[in-house]
Write a protein that binds this DNA or RNA. Structure first.
Ligand SMILES: [Mn+2]
Ligand SMILES: [Mn+2]
Ligand SMILES: [Zn+2]
Ligand SMILES: [Zn+2]
Lengths: 143, 143
DNA sequence: TTGCTTTTGATATTCATTTTCAGTTACTGG
DNA sequence: CCAGTAACTGAAAATGAATATCAAAAGCAA
């Protein structure tokens, strides 16, 4: 799994003529070791802990490369922090975001995805990406 | 329609103990005269034109009041600008956003809304709001 | 190694939005 | 109608996430 993702990134880097650097390896390792929906800040702090030398800008730059490489997806919720999550091949999900405890529930719904495509088709629109988020209170936060 | 919205805001203001000010009246008038999806910047410039004295902060503050009053909805697309649109009672729509020409197509889909509620219910989640946007190219921009 | 190019990290900058605060204005009740 | 008081305003400063800058460092091909 992890080796596979590293290979994907290396192949991407090669095809783009990017150099192999210690920083990118470290950032990828640590990104792959995180759970879903890490903010840049969180990831930066985690990296900083074991690798104090790595700069903020490099983390930002590298995460964008992961997105380009198809390893990560950018998640913009309503807290002004960009988050990243792992892309699992052939899988897509959307989010229920609890405004009480900031937890995120993931869900998949084939029917909705299909309806989205129909709506787009009806308007002659070509979808490149979509976002669907529901904000509210999770079971625990409803007391 | 416009008078009705003004009444909604006045009632809201009264219920909250807010004072009636010239600035809020002007900003509401001009907001009501705009079309969908105005950015704060756009609205500010429009206001500035006829009322040079009104400050940026007041526009920001007042738009948030409109949201609270149920007159406006905040729209966060992915261009770093917060936009506001009019809320029409008993109506809800989502957006197709063209990344080519920045146009926005609105659509309603009862089935999707129903499915969203079912998903939320299944997770014991209480929805307060949701956002659904599809990004891509509109018919014109596909050439 | 050499030489060239990319990459990095510290720092400065940007840009939307929020906060601050002193002066102004709206309401209350006498 | 006025005075007192609390809310409101606008200019400017502050914030905070993200990006740009640029000199030094590192990767790579020969
Ligand atoms: Mn997710
Ligand atoms: Mn709309
Ligand atoms: Zn919760
Ligand atoms: Zn278009």
């Amino acid at each position: 799994m992890i080796l596979e993702k590293k290979k994907i990134f290396n192949d991407f880097a090669t095809s783009k003529g990017l150099r192999s650097t210690r920083q990118r390896d470290i950032i990828l390792d640590i990104f792959l070791s995180t759970h879903q929906h890490v903010s840049v800040e969180e990831l930066y702090l985690k990296i900083k802990f074991s690798n104090p030398g790595i700069g903020y800008a490099t983390v930002y730059r590298t995460l964008k490369l992961f997105v380009e490489a198809g390893l990560a997806r950018e998640i913009l919720l309503h807290d002004g922090q960009t988050r990243y999550e792992h892309i699992v091949a052939g899988e897509h999900h959307d989010h229920l975001v609890c405004t009480g405890c900031n937890s995120i529930i993931e869900f998949e719904d084939e029917t909705i995805e299909k309806l989205q495509n129909e709506i787009a088709a009806r308007h002659g629109f070509m979808i490149k990406s979509h976002k669907m988020e529901m904000y509210g209170l999770c079971a625990a936060c409803r007391q």
